[in-house]
Design a protein around this nucleic acid. Structure first.
Lengths: 187, 187
DNA sequence: ACCTGAACACCGTTCAAGT
DNA sequence: ACCTGAACACCGTTCAAGT
């Protein structure tokens, strides 16, 4: 299969070119993968498997927060596999996508991450006011940022470090509340 | 002008429909705005003005970190004005975009935010290992998340609160370093 | 049964012709 | 000088015809 196109050109790569590269007619491609998302799903299935496997492994490790950190790093790498994938993941995780093809993979990823987050939460290492979806979304958004604005080598690690720090319970975490004034008005 | 289309349909709204709504030929639209980005730029110019103005105002306020927080909230609102705008902002801020039409607006926003960040940094309230672009990108990514995965009402405030907390200097901020093992390998 | 690619639709972009 | 929309290009999607 020619998944190279997505890696090269991003998730929006022309389907007819993919078909041509694969040496089949465009109709054949459509019959195997009725939607673009179905094709994407097939291409990331192994990555999802790996994330789930890694989740199981890490669930038995010593420190819950270190485990979560390592898993989120793997998730960011996964979401950055081709351009546009992070957006699909976030949309699928929320049900905003037109298609349901990624829903299953997404649920599996959420499950794997959820177990690690639950463990960290039970250990009191996770801020209680952050939910699982927030954390997954933030990880995906790091992949999105590096997709659109690759700046320097340490960017991914630095941003992930910030997010991890933000979601971790700190003894002094009292200040820095969001400004109350400009909350979303009814409009 | 028919900017409503972008608000309704996102930044990718069909240009011919915009022209038709505006009661002009598609050719006329192209002559006024040679690229889509040029049109976007015209539509957000007032928002950029407002952000710059707000930046000046806040530069004189008492607490540098509160000022930055309020400004970032305004930036998130601005970037969420229509779907896809956050991506344009991030791309323009990095020079990854095909077009240069947004570069000027972007530089102005960066300038306004940069002044507030510099003040917070001088006051020792900003983590020294985070740069300006990281913060702008994170704010844009919050707008992006709510674009793609609107979950609940408090989402924007909650995520922004996390990011603010993450970039703030805390007395105890020592742990939660990014995992060293899975740094981006040469591949 | 499976594959193919022509055909249609949609949208971006240009440019010759009209005023 | 300015505007118009037909014309072309590109890509997604379907489906009648071929094997």
């Amino acid at each position: 299969v020619a998944l190279d196109a997505f890696v090269e050109q991003g998730i929006g790569a022309p389907l007819d070119e993919i078909a041509r590269r694969a040496g089949v007619g465009i109709g054949t491609l459509y019959r195997h993968f009725p939607t673009r998302e179905a094709l994407v799903d097939a291409l990331i299935r192994d990555g999802v498997d790996e994330l789930c496997h890694k989740g199981d492994e890490l669930a038995g490790s010593a420190d819950p927060m270190d485990a979560l950190a390592a898993w989120l790093r793997a998730l960011v790498d996964h979401a950055a596999r081709f351009r546009g994938l992070a957006a699909s993941i976030v949309a699928a995780g929320c049900g905003t996508d037109h298609d349901q093809a990624l829903a299953d993979s997404c649920a599996r990823v959420n499950g794997a991450g959820g177990a690690l987050m639950a463990r960290a939460r039970e250990a009191g290492q996770l801020r209680p006011d952050v939910d699982d979806a927030d954390i997954i979304d933030l990880a995906a958004s790091i992949a999105w940022i590096t997709d659109h604005a690759p700046r320097d080598e340490g960017q991914t690690d630095r941003l992930l470090g910030l997010v991890l720090d933000a979601i971790t319970t700190h003894p002094s975490a009292a200040g820095a509340a969001p400004p109350a004034d400009r909350s979303s008005a009814p409009e």
